[in-house]
Structures are given as structure tokens and as C-alpha cells.
Design a protein around this nucleic acid. Structure first.
Lengths: 239, 239
DNA sequence: CGCTACATTGAGTTACCTCAAAAATTGTGG
DNA sequence: CCACAATTTTTGAGGTAACTCAATGTAGCG
């Protein structure tokens, strides 16, 4: 036994890219995979880097950051368990990839993984689909950045985290009444960098949501949604 | 002779997706292609539609629009000559595709094109690369929307149009001194929808750029860049 | 328990928005 | 080709959401 984990037991087995492969092939994948633990704040890949490995997130949240020389930063995406990081047959592009929380990664060296993709065209097809999804997500966020008020932006962010957290724990639709508790993967400053707002504005809007009885917080990073449907309304409509 | 145009004479022959195919294969492509002319304002594809055709832009500019039921719109991307529109093996996603200017399109019916892609894996590879590029472009715009002042946003937009217009006319880098004239593909209102600003703000910032001697305008849609390096500076730095 | 890092709160400022009116460009019919 | 209508843009005045800067408060950690 070369390694002490198996794809069959993987927490994101049916969520990750690898699920596209027939079960018979999971051996090949398993053979070229290795695990990494990463601490919050660590940079996984640098901007425009020529990657020598790709990763699938097992647990934790990753942020994709665009940085200008003068220090201005914009978070251009978050990646959650099951998501694939990297670009086979290409360069990473102008984003820095950083651990927003402590991470568990499943990694593949470039060459073996690209070889596997050549043999299994389905992998390329699935990667294409996921890239379409990333593109849709990026464009959705363009709408958020360009058209929403600070209040709606914050509500939208909280809703997104609630949704993704929920989908990791249960299948089926997000109930519109149950209280839902989770850890925020971002600090106030980072939320600002994601939403195009000042940290103070984030803080004030979170306070607002608390005053309205839509959410409550325990400490700085624990949040509980009390009224999901009103949260949703806050994210959609201006009033 | 089935049709009176040939891929060899195509204006975007070496810019479009098709250029990935070996010359010997251009016959196959040619056989399944047909041309369409479209008037400014016409909607080419509707949001989430299951496309029965794909398009390559021969000339003109296309806008990708996200619309909310309450009328708020955000332009989430522009597509220029050579760009590919549509998603083989997938749905379009939540964007409406509209002609920003009069258009010349080269179209492919879904099935034949998907068949060709199956036979020519290089096509799928190239499509993946282009989707990566689209993703990078979207993320770049997230930075613009989230982090730039109205002045920098407008400068950034003008610069982008100047750049793409130039690259259609000449190869090699954009000179940082030559005056450069072009037609704006968007109205003031549309620029606002692209940049997340009110139309009036766009107007005022364009005026500013004129006052500074960076650009001049002839009518509403014709613009000439007088000082590209200062335009670039306005797009990058805050002062 | 105190230190540090982060978050909250407050006050004052500003960039952008909104609404309304005037001007310029483009399109149309004679 | 001109006059006029329709459309789009420009300009102005006033309001407001979000920013900045500074002070205070709080969770988390050794």
C-alpha cells in the first residue's frame, strides 16, 4: 500500500473533477495523487506562474486575488471543497491563489495529470464545463460589484457562503427557514476586497443585518442565518 | 461552388478558433459555415438558451448582458472580431448576447460543429484556452468594477477599445504616441452599464479626458486618442 | 492577564447619483 | 439639401451612500 488514503473514501469523491472518471480508472488517478495541508494565509500559486501541479480542494476555502503594484487588491473568486485549481495545458493567469482558511488539498503533478487527460478525453470535457461555471460565477460577481448597494453586496456574500456551506453538508435545496450556522472564510478586510467596499462598510452592514434579526454572530467569524428568505430579499432588491 | 466566400479570404482567418485547424481541414469547416448580418440592437442569443448554433464574429462588437427582472442591467463582457460565441456541449449560461454594433457573423449549426470537435480534439483544446482567456478578462473587469474610480474606469474602457481596435488593423504593440481614431461600440448609457456608473458620470469623465487633452471626440461615437500614455496612466493610478 | 490583531463606532468629507433642463447629434420627410 | 423631430448627450444643482481617518472596543492567543 503506497499511501494511506483512497479515492473511494475521499470527502469530495462525487463533487470533484475526478468523479468524471469511471471507477475502474480511479486507480490511475490515485497513483499520481498526493495530499497537502496548508495553513491560512499561505500562498499556493503565484500570479502567472507556470504550475508544476494542480489541486483539488478537499476541505477549506481558497481565494483568488488580483494584485496591483500599488497594493490595491481585488478578490476575484473563492474556491470551495471539490473545486479544481490550475490550468492544464496553460498558465495560471494573473491571479494569486491563497489559502483563506486552513486547507486540505489533493494534488497532481502536471505531467502525469496532463497525460491522464490525454487518455481520458472526458476529463477535458469536464474541465471545460467547470471553466464555463467559473466564468458564469465571475460574471455574476461583476453584476454584484457593478449594480448592488453595499447592503445587498454583503447580504449576497453571506447568502453565498451559507449556500455553499449547506451544500457540503446536505443534498437537496437550501431550506428557507432553518437556522444555518457556519464559519466565515474571510475577515472583514477580505470581504471588503471581495465586494469592492471598505472594511468599515462591511462592519456596518453586518450590524444592520443583525439589527434586522436576519443573522446573528458569535465572535468574529461564526455566523448564523436566522431568516434566509429575508437575507435573500436583501441580496436581490433595493429598499 | 456552394457558397461565395472562403475561409482563406476570411478577415479573421488567423484570429478565430478555426485557425487551429490544419489547412486541409478548412474545407470541412467551410462546408458547415454560413454567414449572417445583424443590426445593432438585435438580440442574438437569449439567456440560458439551448443554442442551435454558434458564431464567430467577422466584424462588429457584441455585448454580453446580465439582466435582472427589475430592469437592472450589467454588461459582463464585450466580444470582438475573431471571438467565438456559444458553448459546445453546454448551455449558454445566464447572459443575453446582443449586437452592440452592426455585425457580420460566421455561424455553425450545433450538431455538425460538435461532430467536428469530436473528430478534431485540437478544437476543444483551443476552446478551453479561449474560455480561460474569457475568464481572465472577466476577472480583470471585476478589478475594474471593484477598485477603480469613475475616472479610471472610463480611461480603462477607452484604452481597451483603442487596443482592440488597433490590433484589428495592425500587428505589433500599441504605439504610445500615435493618435488613434475609432468608433465607440457603446452609447453612454451602455458604457455606464459596463462600468457600473451612471450615464452622466460617463459623460463628465469623458469631458475631463478631453479637457486634459488626452482624447478628442467627433460627434458622439467617434473618438481619437491623442496621448495614449497619459490615458494609460489615468487608467492605472489614482491621483 | 495582558498583548496583539482585528473589528466596531463616530464624525466629517467626497465621489457619485438623481432629477431636471438645455444642447448637440442623428435621423426623416418634404 | 434643409427644417424639424427624435434621440442622445451634456450640464447644473442638490442629495446621499460610501469613504477616510481616528478613537474605542473586543475576541483570541501566549
Amino acid at each position: 500500500m503506497g499511501s494511506h488514503f483512497a479515492c473511494d473514501e475521499c470527502a469530495v469523491r462525487d463533487r470533484a473533477l475526478c468523479s468524471a472518471l469511471p471507477r475502474a480508472e480511479s486507480g490511475h488517478l490515485h497513483r499520481i495523487a498526493y495530499r497537502r495541508q496548508i495553513r491560512r494565509g499561505k500562498i499556493i500559486y503565484y500570479s502567472d506562474q507556470d504550475l508544476e501541479s494542480f489541486s483539488v480542494i478537499i476541505s477549506g476555502v481558497v481565494k483568488l486575488v488580483r494584485t496591483k503594484s500599488d497594493g490595491r487588491q481585488q478578490i476575484v473568486g473563492l474556491q470551495f471543497p471539490g473545486d479544481f485549481i490550475g490550468r492544464p495545458f496553460g498558465e495560471l493567469g494573473p491571479v494569486m491563489v491563497e489559502a483563506a482558511t486552513d486547507l486540505d488539498l489533493c494534488c497532481f503533478s502536471r505531467k502525469p495529470f496532463e497525460n491522464l487527460m490525454q487518455q481520458q478525453p472526458i476529463l477535458e470535457r469536464v474541465l471545460l464545463q467547470r471553466t464555463f461555471d467559473d466564468l458564469d460565477a465571475a460574471r455574476h460577481w461583476m453584476f454584484v460589484l457593478g449594480r448592488l448597494s453595499s447592503r445587498a453586496k454583503v447580504a449576497c456574500f453571506v447568502h453565498q457562503i451559507a449556500e455553499r456551506t449547506h451544500s457540503l453538508r446536505a443534498t437537496g435545496p437550501l431550506e428557507y427557514s432553518c437556522p444555518l450556522e457556519f464559519e466565515l472564510p474571510l475577515s472583514r478586510t477580505e470581504m471588503g476586497e471581495y465586494l469592492g467596499l471598505a472594511m468599515e462598510t462591511i462592519s456596518r452592514q453586518i450590524k444592520e443585518l443583525k439589527n434586522e434579526g436576519i443573522i446573528e454572530t458569535k465572535g468574529w467569524r461564526t455566523m448564523r442565518v436566522l431568516d434566509l428568505s429575508r437575507l435573500h430579499a436583501r441580496a436581490e432588491f433595493e429598499d
